[in-house]
Amino acid sequence: MNENYLELTVGAVFVYNFVLSRFLGICPFLGVSKKISTALGMGGAVIFVMTLASFCTSLVYHYLLQIKEIAGFKVDLSFLQILLFIVIIAGLVQLVEIILQKLSPVLYGALGIYLPLITTNCAVLGVAAINAQSAREVLPSTVFGFFSGVGFALALVLFASIRERLELAQIPKIFQGMSIALITAGILAMAFMGFAGLC
């Protein structure tokens, strides 16, 4: 399958943005978007995990789940997809965390609590599932995973910067806190709808 990488990239970052178009990973989107610095940390961790997860899960998808016959027996392992993906993502993130802690304490400190937090994030599982659904090859899958993470980080940083401004704004009492955040998220999502049909 010949992939158009430009289309893949723009699609992952803008058109089918994970948070604002697919509405996956809303929990961290609302949870860690109060400050730009934490949003950047979270975004970095998500990019990292999504790239890794889509690489590994597409390997598993192509070389394990596609097996139709083992030792003369007919098998169909595709129902294991989600189970396997979760186990692999969780295990890998754990592994990477242990290695990072030793090799790069600085990066470990920067990613901090976010790394284990996003292990079972639906956006990360979503990347793997979407890759499997469209039967992408390993390299396009990885590229898609990376740019999906970039899209997530973009949405998070945009939202965090708006929320930082909102801290200083005079907001009517009933809209304060989470309600204005949800309204903002809705408007942001509508703005991203403008990219629809681009690819």
């Binding site: 394990l64 027996f73 392992l77 396997l84």
Partner: peptide
């Protein structure tokens, strides 16, 4: 399928 599913999950 059951056996191989268990095997696949178990081995991974």
């Amino acid at each position: 399928s059951v056996v191989f599913a268990a095997l696949a999950m178990g081995s991974i």
